[in-house]
Simulated scan of single mutants.
Amino acid sequence: MIRRFGAPPVRGETYVRRVGAYALLPRGRHLLLTCQSDPDPDLQLPGGGVDPGESPVAALHREVYEETGWHVANPRRIGAFRRFAYLPEYDLWAEKICLIYVAKPTLRIGLPTEPLHQAIWTEPSVAAKLLGNAGDRHFAEMLARAFITP
């Protein structure tokens, strides 16, 4: 059973299961995050949904690049969690299955290609307080405590 973070499902809503791959990206004593500015500013672990026919690791590479402009190496899965959320950009109630990886940011290619995203560097202990969802905060706290490296 995968640990749940956040609010329980809303009674009467139908949820679509959406698997996503997300990354802790430490470099030195900092962690690479993304800030999505719309509909409200939200600090997130870089990553996102796995498309049909795509592997979670391929989705991780694609999503990290789109949201941060960075390439990564050596992704290693360290855990998973689920959360129930309304996704306004898709007008969808989703049961998000979040696969969490740690990887090494290796090369900045440019700015994020995903609209309304900005790459942000911060200390893991700060990220553990500011990330927008409890699951992301949990894994950032693990990183801050153990300083996991890829």
Rank of each mutant, 00 (worst) to 15 (best):
F5W: 05
F5P: 03
F5D: 04
G6T: 09
G6M: 06
A7M: 12
P8K: 09
P8Y: 05
P8N: 09
P9D: 02
V10L: 15
V10W: 09
R11D: 10
G12D: 10
E13I: 07
E13C: 06
E13F: 03
T14K: 13
T14V: 13
V16P: 00
V16A: 11
R18L: 13
R18E: 11
V19I: 13
V19T: 15
A21R: 05
A21G: 08
Y22I: 02
A23W: 08
L24D: 02
L24C: 04
L24P: 03
L25M: 09
P26S: 03
P26D: 00
P26V: 01
R27W: 12
R27V: 11
G28Q: 03
R29Y: 11
L31K: 04
L32Y: 08
L32V: 10
L33S: 00
D38A: 15
D38N: 14
P39W: 09
P39T: 08
D40E: 14
D40F: 14
D40V: 14
D40I: 12
D40P: 02
P41V: 07
D42S: 14
L43P: 03
Q44D: 13
L45Y: 03
L45I: 04
P46D: 09
P46W: 09
P46Q: 10
P46S: 08
P46Y: 08
G47A: 00
G47V: 02
G47M: 02
G47T: 00
G48P: 05
G48Q: 07
G49I: 10
G49C: 06
V50Y: 07
V50Q: 02
V50F: 09
P52I: 08
P52V: 11
G53L: 11
E54P: 06
E54C: 07
E54Q: 14
E54M: 11
E54L: 06
S55N: 11
V57N: 02
V57E: 15
A59T: 09
L60N: 01
L60T: 04
R62V: 00
V64Q: 04
V64N: 05
